[in-house]
């Protein structure tokens, strides 16, 4: 007999989890969904963000969320540099597909091994007042370590969405994903806009990293678990659609939570694949997006 309250709790936990996934996927929704740059290394950067947060939190007692925002400018600059390198070496030569993918895969691997070498392979965690606490509401339990990342993630996505829709730069970023010639006619360099957008995508890794280490203890190779999830969510949501990505994240979070609670947690990482493959095969436009 399935207890309805247990199902409800699993769904609520799934919603919170999905909101957090959206924070990790946000950078990929920008880089891959809008700029067509398959940045496989993004989840590894998220883990770097988590370790940076750990450093700031354990040494200076800075709140993890604040630490994530403090590191964001640095991640932004690193993103600019990485895109420049990618552009010069691959995009400009027209060899973006094979070599570019392998490049990001290599960067992913280097980042991961670099973390092991510099910080060790141990699990790290942070402390903050809300991490052990929880809210109880009508029989449901909302743990702070899930609730805070959910709220921060939704806020971050909302802000970024507003920026893209309202500001001139934001609209130029949207335009670059549609039509580069039109942008050039407006006197804006598509490469500059792409550089900026990639920097922004990378900055989200810092914040997503802070959220990650609030959700669970982190070790260097944990980023891999999120590659499949993040790309699945971006493809399922429809390339370039923020709302689609968020919706897909929530669906993934809820499904994983139900499977973990009702059946077996070790199957959870496979669920993203279960979404990805049929989407690619039968509905390549995703839930809310353009056709591939």
């Amino acid at each position: 007999m399935v207890d309805p309250l247990a199902v409800l709790n699993a769904v609520v936990a799934g919603v919170l989890l999905g909101g957090f996934y959206a924070a990790v996927a946000l950078g990929i929704a920008i880089a891959f969904g809008m700029l067509d740059i398959p940045n496989l290394a993004h989840p590894a950067f998220v883990v770097v963000g988590a370790f940076a947060t750990w450093l700031l939190n354990s040494h200076f007692g800075i709140d993890p969320v604040l630490a994530g925002f403090l590191m964001a400018p640095l991640f932004f600059l690193l993103g600019l540099a990485l895109y420049r390198l990618y552009h010069i070496c691959f995009e400009r030569r027209g060899e973006a597909s094979l070599q570019g993918l392998a490049f990001f895969f290599g960067v992913l691997f280097i980042t991961e091994v670099g973390l092991v070498l510099s910080a060790g392979a141990d699990y790290r965690s942070v402390s903050a007042p809300y991490i052990g606490a929880s809210l109880s509401f009508a029989g449901m339990v909302l743990p702070g370590r899930m609730l805070v990342p959910f709220v921060v993630s939704i806020a971050m996505i909302g802000l970024l969405h507003r920026f893209l829709a309202r500001s001139f730069t934001g609209r130029a970023i949207l335009a670059v994903s549609q039509d580069q010639t039109a942008l050039r006619l407006m006197g804006v360099s598509p490469i500059r806009i792409k550089t900026l957008a990639f920097g922004l995508a990378n900055a989200t890794a810092s914040i997503a990293g802070a959220l990650l280490i609030i959700v669970e203890p982190v070790e260097p190779s944990i980023g891999r678990d999120f590659i499949g999830r993040a790309f699945a969510v971006v493809v399922l949501g429809g390339m370039g659609s923020f709302y689609g990505m968020l919706l897909a994240s929530l669906i993934l979070g809820i499904t994983e939570s139900l499977v973990s609670d009702m059946w077996n947690p070790s199957w959870a990482p496979a669920i993203a694949f279960g979404f990805l493959l049929p989407t690619l095969a039968f509905r390549s436009g995703g839930l809310l997006g353009r056709k591939l």
């Binding site: 398959p38 496989l40 993918l101 499949g228 699945a232 493809v235 694949f273 690619l280 591939l292």
Partner: peptide, 11 residues
Amino acid sequence: RGVFFSIATLA
């Protein structure tokens, strides 16, 4: 496109 095949293999 090839990139989607690649992502699927990763997953």
